[in-house]
Design a protein around this nucleic acid. Sequence first.
DNA 1: GCCAACGTTGGC
DNA 2: GCCAACGTTGGC
Length: 728
Amino acid sequence: MNEEPLKTPVPGGAPVEQVVGGQSIQKINAKAEWICEPTPAPKPRAALNSVTAQELLGSEAAGFEPPVDWFEPLEDDDYDNESLAGESERSESVAGSEKLFKKIYKFPMPRRKRSQRDEGWDQWSILGEGWKRKEVVRRSGSSIGQKDVYYLSPRGDRVRSRVELISVMEGQLDLSTFDYKSGKFYNGEVQPVRIRHRAKRKVRERSSSESSWMERGDGADTPDSHTTSTPSLGPKNLQTSRFLNSAGGTLNKDSRDEHPPAGETNKLPLPSSSRPLPSINGEIGSEDDILVCARCGISFTGTWYDKQRKRPCCPNCWAASKSKEHPLIRFRKGPGSAAFVPQKPYNDIPDVYEDSLSFQSEFAESQHPSLKSSDTENFSVNVDVDVDDDDDDDMSTDDDDDWHKKRKRRACGECKACLCRKDCGTCDFCVDKPKFGGSNKKRQKCRLRQCQRQAMRHLLPYQKGLRQHWPDGQLLPGRPRPHYTYSRKSDFKKSRESQDGLDFTDNEDDDCNIKPINWTTASAGGSTYLFGLDVKNQLPSTQLDTMDLQLANGLPDGVPHISVNHNNSKPITQIFSLAENPPSGGADIDNQLMTLLQSLRSSAMPIMWYAIMVEGPQLQLIQCSKQSSLSDTIVLIDPGFCYQVTVQKQPLLPTHPLYDRYPARLTSVTEVVGLLLGLEDYVVCQGLPPKEPLSDSNLIILERASTCDFLVNKKVSVCTNCKALRGL
DNA sequence: GCCAACGTTGGC
DNA sequence: GCCAACGTTGGC
Ligand SMILES: [Zn+2]
Ligand SMILES: [Zn+2]
């Protein structure tokens, strides 16, 4: 999918050329090109990938000098219709400019045009010809008002830190006396030591704050086997110490202290009267507009707007609007009122998922039977109790809350993924990380560390290439990855079967984040990640929700490992793909079921049928292809080799004709295969729409008769019993 | 509609 | 100061 096969992790500490401080730009374009050029691509194209249009004009379209403000944003107010989404208010003008530019020059443009990309860059020739610099004031979040300085290299590298700058410079310039923030050299001058007024936030404070302490990189450790330039990302990451020692420690920023006075523990901006205006250093600030705060009426400089970006809002009012609640504590609506619970003892936290069974029991464990708060780490976690005080003010916390919720909700802090401290080092997101030699394009948390409950679905582990490989039953080559599996326990089942209710909660964006992720409700679109397994729900019924499906990790080169636990109360004890190579090692020879299982494993089996052994023992054969019309069908074989077929966990009626066509006991591979092949003649009964559609929903819910056959001949999509129910 | 890409923020 | 990684954009 991406270019990682051509990127080798860099042993040692020195970043290679491609890895320019995490902002590699050399191979951004189509992967075909990249594949042809495993070594850094020619600079012109690299530049085109990330250079600004403005820069192109300057460097390539010689002679054309656009007006100074050619790419300058119009007034933010001009884009009122773009209410949300950060800087989108500016994208229009930029996009328009880009079109114009394209039209005139027919240059290949960067793949993407980010609105801020071309804006606000100042020539910064002190670093060399073509260098640019820009300051960006944070517009939201608890660090609002903070300024970030970026540099843009002539090649288009967007540099975010001193370390990156040094890396990008590749020694072309001695930066030992360069102050990153101010962008100036202090040759021979002794810089006053900048005093940090801001008290360092304590771990405790942090962990009980709104921030989900787990959600951040927070010590995502690097597996040793993958260690490249960053052996560890612990709290004391020494990776950059050599830079800091040579520069950061002795070299200092401009002497003007822009930190809040002592006692101000958060980073909210100070009133403009006491705080330096957002513009600094003359030339930088000179382009800022003088604005009048729509709230308090004071004049201020900069680009501060309310959340809708419609009206100017001075930093002070920004702060005021945020301080209605503690900026570091969020509450969320929900049952119970406890805001914080002690977190699982840290020493129970796995470094990685080591095997399938550890993951299998995840949801049982997530009940946290042991909540020792005496642990040395004593983590706490926000349980997301939301008070959701609706705010009338439109610069207000409504958006702010939304923003915060969105920003903060992707980690429950409790699930195994959240508690996992180590990056796997092999998933696509890990491979993208600079510390693993990646180019930092995706910038996402390790898939295995994505919260099982709250992470966005597309970030969860999944089977890369699933769709290419599974329909035809081909398994990917390569060493099997550890599969993690788990079964949901009966609480899940209970909640579903006891009610006729249809729970379509797609919890991705609502507040139901206390329960485990609801895998089975998502069926829209082409990408349904059921924590890995993409299952097509034939029928959004309660029955579906009782399906208990779980698939292994989503590592790009992983062999799909499927484990499906149909029976909620039976832990999976053995997981085998029928197509998998026989594993070495002995099984329980005495167990005849196991013998059958092993025979099955070494036999050619119908496509996408997998076998697992669950406690009982019980041998289960599961159709794991979502494309299959039998995708929710399971054959259960008990130790006496009697079997039962279930569809979406519903057993077929004993009178089902299927049972007449096949032996009552499945004692051999032949018999098993015969049944599985015979099943292919069936499809799952679709059910029929109710007579009275749901009032408040545009969903079409299909219902089945209680005597539904579940499996019907392929030519019929609905069984006779369901038809009878509708009088058909 | 998907997802690569990346601007941006959180937090040590 | 640094960087992990969140959330969004926009090309395809
Ligand atoms: Zn990973
Ligand atoms: Zn979690």
